[in-house]
Computed example of a mutant assay.
Amino acid sequence: MAIKERKEREKQDMRNLIIDSATGLFLKLGYDKTSIRTIAEDIEYSPATIYLYFKDKDEIFYVIHENAFALLDKEFRKHDVIENHFERLAAICSTYINFALKNPDYYDLMFIMRAPLSQIACEETWTAGNCAFDYLLDTMSGCVDEKLIKGGDKFLLAMSVWSFGHGLVSLYVRGRFDVMNMPEDVVKDMLDKAVANFLNNLKA
């Protein structure tokens, strides 16, 4: 392996180490109580080393967001083969729920944890996050244009569907369904049926 290639790999390995550490600490301590020094102590490097890769913890948080939304968007894009836009919408909703159930930590960081999004505001485009929502919006637009659901503002409809699904999975991620003592598969089935019922109420 060439020296340049080895150095690039080592650089990426260090970035990944920092991101993995920050992800765990954000979840364990919360955003406010996690600092560059905390992350440095966790990976046993100096804070100065981290500043070689990231300007501050906001940028680290942004990268974590990008990685998580890229995973979600990748799952959404698997539904390109579904030509009927309403059926694709239902598949997106199911994928969203499955993503939250399989990746509760990521979901917490993406949608629930209180943290400043200043880095996102500084970026010209929020690539992965925008792509994921745009896929939902484009699918909803197809449903409206083809009169598969009741007419209305496409953006508002997309936000309504997302908000409904988010409310359900947030209850799950934060353990609010635990008090019901329901098996995991029953909870999953309940979430799927709730979203399906919501979507059916939108049908034309």
Rank of each mutant, 00 (worst) to 15 (best):
R114Y: 12
F61R: 11
I97W: 12
M113K: 14
A115E: 08
F61A: 12
K78R: 06
E66V: 01
I112C: 12
N67S: 13
Y53S: 02
E87F: 09
E59M: 02
N103M: 00
K74F: 15
A70P: 09
L117C: 09
I64M: 10
F76I: 05
Y107G: 08
M113G: 13
L71W: 07
E59P: 03
A90S: 04
D108K: 02
F86I: 08
V81A: 15
K55T: 04
C93G: 11
H79K: 02
F61P: 01
D108M: 02
P104Q: 04
N103Q: 01
H85V: 00
C93T: 13
Y62I: 07
M110Q: 11
L71S: 10
L101F: 08
D58M: 08
A68Y: 03
Y62Q: 05
S94Y: 15
F111N: 03
P116L: 02
E87W: 04
F54K: 05
E83A: 15
D56L: 04
H79Y: 06
D108Y: 03
F61H: 12
I97S: 11
F76D: 06
I112A: 13
L71P: 00
I50E: 13
Y107C: 05
Y96V: 00
K78Y: 05
K57H: 08
R88F: 14
N103P: 00
D58E: 14
H85S: 06
I50A: 13
R88L: 13
Y62G: 04
C93Y: 10
I82Q: 10
I112L: 15
D73R: 10
L117M: 14
A70C: 07
K55Y: 04
N98T: 15
D58Q: 11
C93A: 14
F69V: 00
A100C: 08
D108G: 00
I60N: 05
M110C: 10
Y51A: 08
Y96W: 03
A91P: 09
S94F: 15
I64V: 15
A100F: 04
F76G: 09
V81T: 14
Y106W: 09
F69M: 02
F54M: 04
F99V: 10
L71I: 04
K78I: 06
K57L: 06
S94G: 13
M113S: 15
H79E: 05
I50W: 13
D108F: 03
F111R: 02
Y106L: 10
H65E: 12
F99E: 09
H85G: 01
R88Y: 13
D73C: 09
I97F: 13
L52G: 14
I112N: 14
M113W: 07
D56R: 07
Y96S: 00
A115C: 10
P104W: 08
E66C: 01
I92N: 06
H85W: 01
I97P: 09
K55M: 06
N67C: 09
L109Y: 14
T95K: 06
F86D: 12
R77L: 11
A91V: 04
E87I: 01
V81I: 15
F54A: 03
E66S: 01
Y106H: 08
N98K: 15
I97C: 12
E59T: 03
M113L: 12
L101T: 04
N84K: 06
A90P: 00
A68P: 00
L101E: 06
L117T: 13
V63M: 11
D56A: 07
L117K: 10
F99D: 09
L117R: 14
Y106F: 10
